[in-house]
Design a protein around this nucleic acid. Sequence first.
DNA 1: CGGAACATTGACGATAATCAAAGCGAGTGG
DNA 2: CCACTCGCTTTGATTATCGTCAATGTTCCG
Lengths: 250, 250
Amino acid sequence: MVNAFLQRLSQAADLTDGELSAVDELCRQPKDIAAKKYLSRDGDEMVSFPVVLSGWAARYQILRDGARQITRLLLPGDAFYFGSAPNGVAIEEVITLSPCKIVNILYSDMRRLIDRFPAIGEAMRTYGCMENAILASWVVNVGRRDALERMAHLICESHYRLALVDLDQGQQIHFPLTQDDLADVLGLTPVHINRKLQQLRQDDLITLRCKQLTIHDLRALQQVAGFDPAYLTPRAQSQPDQQSPRAAAA
Amino acid sequence: MVNAFLQRLSQAADLTDGELSAVDELCRQPKDIAAKKYLSRDGDEMVSFPVVLSGWAARYQILRDGARQITRLLLPGDAFYFGSAPNGVAIEEVITLSPCKIVNILYSDMRRLIDRFPAIGEAMRTYGCMENAILASWVVNVGRRDALERMAHLICESHYRLALVDLDQGQQIHFPLTQDDLADVLGLTPVHINRKLQQLRQDDLITLRCKQLTIHDLRALQQVAGFDPAYLTPRAQSQPDQQSPRAAAA
DNA sequence: CGGAACATTGACGATAATCAAAGCGAGTGG
DNA sequence: CCACTCGCTTTGATTATCGTCAATGTTCCG
């Protein structure tokens, strides 16, 4: 599981238990703005390397006019080191979308680990690639799909990512996003989200109530979304024939 | 310059000149689809690690209906390892937008280099962070800005990135994107691009002719775009006061 | 009970897409 | 040297997706 940075990390933690300082586990309430704590820095050594253990969080940016765009969903197993603020100036903030457990590791410790175990460095690079792939797919989603397709695609992606990390919960997943959150993920307005959600419901593709999302017809949903999980699948599979249908028109 | 992966790489190449096999330098014509060559793989060892030396290229995806979305602009100094196709199945393709020089390095060689010089591994991670930051900013751009702001923002970003790597060419840069390309970067239609370009011209912000882009009033353009270069600036600057104005509304 | 956050509905408006045609410039070939 | 084509740009008219505004409903919680 490339995705499960968590796994690799906990392995590492097992190996060098006494060595990881500041592995404080936090339980945070929804809508808690965690950015200040996790992305601040006082001197290089204090840069921390947080990993989500459970719950959903998100990175976002706020524009001048107050508009918000969520740039990344942080699901269990996801790491969010200062990725988007290389100089420590946090353009992006982090917010929890459900109660979260977050492990916090000093980046200096990470670096020591990497020196000791090159495989961890490799894992970090690979994980970074997957983040890239997801971000690129979001650009495609927001740039070239209409509202219904976007929603469907996000649901497929979330479902798939959760299945990669968690035990497979079948077609029912915890989906804590409000319609406002969805709007800010997909670059739409809450009102429009509402209408398109209804459409998905009417077409009997999903049920979404009380933050529980049930996918009734995964294949149909993927069809609507034009979803191809290739960008999420861990590498080194190398099944040359199994590529899902992907049109390459001019 | 974190951005200039090129620099670090050429340093490395200097250090271990005889060691880098397959450093073939290629000159490619515009609209050349380079993906097949660079992103294919036959066994893990053949994965290559291309770096753009000069010219512009782009990564993109094609949707079912034939729509294209460009997910990344590859400017001089940019590396595009198989970042978005961890399993070798290329969802994304690469196309050159102007004549390009591209260096091609075997990933196995990179790995050897990293083992020898941990700083290179660190540089790769940092570089990956910057790619992430750019992708996130594209999500914001396409998700929450209108057409005019998007155009302005893309121009500011390109200008800034080029200034980081190349010598500062002042306010005139080579800008090889056609209006169709721009449309596929910004998630709009070519017709709309055309109209908004005219607006930028009428407002005396830019001139764009014969693939030469001149920025007449950079500050005004950044104002239109809501552009804040913080996400592009190399880290470890740590100027606590110099953060450009950034509104954090609720 | 009252309030807050979230969901839903309707009417209207605006930004951007679509369709279609014409202009322009550069390179090609007769 | 001049048609001719091809890729790119420009323009106009029309459509529609999505946004805006505003109000009402609902659920949950103190």
